[in-house]
Design a protein around this nucleic acid. Structure first.
Lengths: 341, 341
DNA sequence: CAACAAACTTTACTTGCGTAAAATATTTGG
DNA sequence: CCAAATATTTTACGCAAGTAAAGTTTGTTG
């Protein structure tokens, strides 16, 4: 903390009277040295400002303390929140989380994986882009680095942790059908397995309930989902082209845009009798509770997904191969009834 | 790309017939070797899969290619967007950006700085927590690492790049006064210089215009700003405690919450004659265009701030000390007139 | 083709720490 | 209090590069 800066373990050994190998042991695991030595070391650390050089450490350790987190788009509220939770758990467990964003682009995802691999991380948590991912790259990465795939189930890595879209979509479709006009389904052309699953489950559930599925699929692929919801929603409303006045959006960000579209077109949204339209989303994004009206949606169990992903990765790192071949853990969601549907 | 994997430069030297020091030169700057050698190396790289070990590189180089980016809260849309832009520019310039989030906590900010410092980065871009920052830590960090401070002007580092709050608040206060009832100002107890500046500029501008300033300051400090806006806004509206029906919020996230509060209390927001209340924000967050009604606000010039911060850092890294002692670059904002005020 | 510079190879040292083996010291407990 | 068990020190080497100096090759120019 305090005094002069000491730059190497060698120097610290000199001023503390403890040998360098013992110091090395201490920094790997403070509990692995005798109490008396530990206090001596900690006293020296009080008087001299020293921090081990991470590069030197990782060059020599067979297993680094680095954990890579790769997400498709770090500015997306869902991933931002997910990353936040994962980072916390990694830090608390004494690991060193490094976050990479693919910024929605295949090349940058590949790049992130390559960079990460050259860091020889202890493990990686990867939320792939989905359809745009370079499957071979991901697989060859996952062959080298203990990898848990989360969010989007690209069939690579040692395990998958994600959300049970069948359960959640069935839940919200059922709810919407029971409480009013059966919903149409608004989506972008699916870019990942989740989006696909959601659409298919919507169709299946509608059929089960004896309704005609109505899917509106717009062919856009920016990461600016709200804009897509707003623009396409406005078009649909203005042209009176909606097959149902109840709209289930494939995710909350689209729904946020769709809500704005309704508002701007003077359409009142909600489940009350005075409302002309119902809009529901999926994910329970952090924003969903602050829309006007507050968004009815199905939650993803963020913290369960984050927690389990990290736990499974830690197990992997400690050498516990998962029992099943490539387990897929899904967490269900809860219906979040707010005012919009 | 293709064939057998080669793990060290030594091995690559063996199979390529080029000496290791020359390879080292090549990886530092491909243009620094003769064309004929360059092609030979690139041919070898085609046949063997090799990537230099980042740890070894950084341990030995006096100057690493690492750039640290530290933000107070990575899940905040403003910082998420900022980070996205900064990362891009760093990658394009051949640097290796590493993002750290303080998760709103002093200890984690210190921790991030400590970790970062042990990476001996070429430079750092730091958006401090503000009032919660440990000034001594930041300063001692900035003494060692070429640092540009952005967003929140903690007086450390070699330069500051940020937003001109005086200009933008004056702009929006003027606008609001000209177009209707003079605004009251809604804020959390300021946690950083920006918030302070905004409040003070509000007060000054109101006085200049001959109006009585009306500041509503709530004593909360979570990072869940929207919730604060919603809860406190609801309270104020329900208790009819607002000194003015025009509310200027200290930032867009508060405004988003306030909009929700108005909606939920049945108060119509907007600048039309049929509206009971006007709400404006500050920052032009990515969400602001999708609120209901769309949020009138003042923009921050995100990309200018990101760009200039990075450029100044690159100059610093290349040894160009800034001319002034510690220049402070401010970018002005533009009034974004939408429907809410 | 000689002269010279630029590029390259060889050699050898540096970085900061992990780690293994052998020697020595300390603790434990019977 | 002594032997066994445990912890620490000493010594020495390894990692994957950067880098510097000296010698060699290649390329260019007049």
């Amino acid at each position: 903390m305090g005094g002069r800066r000491v730059n190497t373990m060698e120097e610290l050994a000199a001023v503390s009277g403890i040998s360098r190998p013992t110091l090395s042991k201490y920094f790997n695991d403070p509990d692995s040295v005798r109490v008396s030595t530990r206090t001596k070391i900690q006293q020296a650390l009080q008087r001299y400002d020293y921090r081990p050089n991470i590069f030197a450490i990782n060059q020599n350790r067979k297993l680094t303390k680095t954990i890579g987190i790769v997400v498709p788009y770090s500015a997306d509220p869902f991933f931002a929140e997910m990353v936040r939770m994962i980072e916390r758990r990694c830090i608390d467990a004494g690991f060193w989380p490094l976050v990479f964003s693919a910024h929605g682009e295949r090349d940058l995802e590949n790049n992130a994986l390559a960079t990460l691999q050259s860091l020889r991380p202890a493990g990686a948590l990867l939320a792939p882009l989905g359809r745009s991912s370079d499957f071979d790259s991901v697989q060859s990465f996952a062959d080298e680095v203990p990898t848990i795939i989360f969010d989007s189930n690209l069939k690579a890595g040692k395990a998958f942790v994600g959300h049970d879209n069948s359960q959640s979509i069935a839940l919200v479709v059922n709810y919407l059908c029971r409480t009013g006009e059966p919903p149409c389904f608004f989506e972008m052309v699916p870019v990942n397995p989740n989006a696909n699953k959601r659409r298919n489950t919507y169709i299946a559930t509608m059929k089960e309930l004896g309704h005609q599925p109505m899917v509106i699929s717009v062919d856009r692929s920016e990461w600016d989902f709200e804009r897509i919801g707003l623009e396409e929603g406005s078009r649909l409303i203005a042209q009176n082209a909606l097959p149902s006045q109840t709209v289930l959006c494939s995710n909350d960000r689209l729904a946020v845009g769709f809500l704005a579209a309704a508002y701007q077109n003077g359409v009142k949204v909600g489940y009350g009798d005075d409302c002309a339209m119902r809009i529901a989303g999926h994910d329970d994004h952090p924003q969903a509770q602050f829309t006007c009206p507050p968004l009815t949606t199905v939650s993803q169990d963020y913290s369960a997904i984050a927690e389990r992903s990290v736990d499974m990765l830690f197990d992997l790192i400690e050498g516990e191969e998962p029992e099943a071949d490539r387990p897929e853990v899904l967490f269900g969601g809860k219906l979040v009834m707010r005012a919009s549907a």
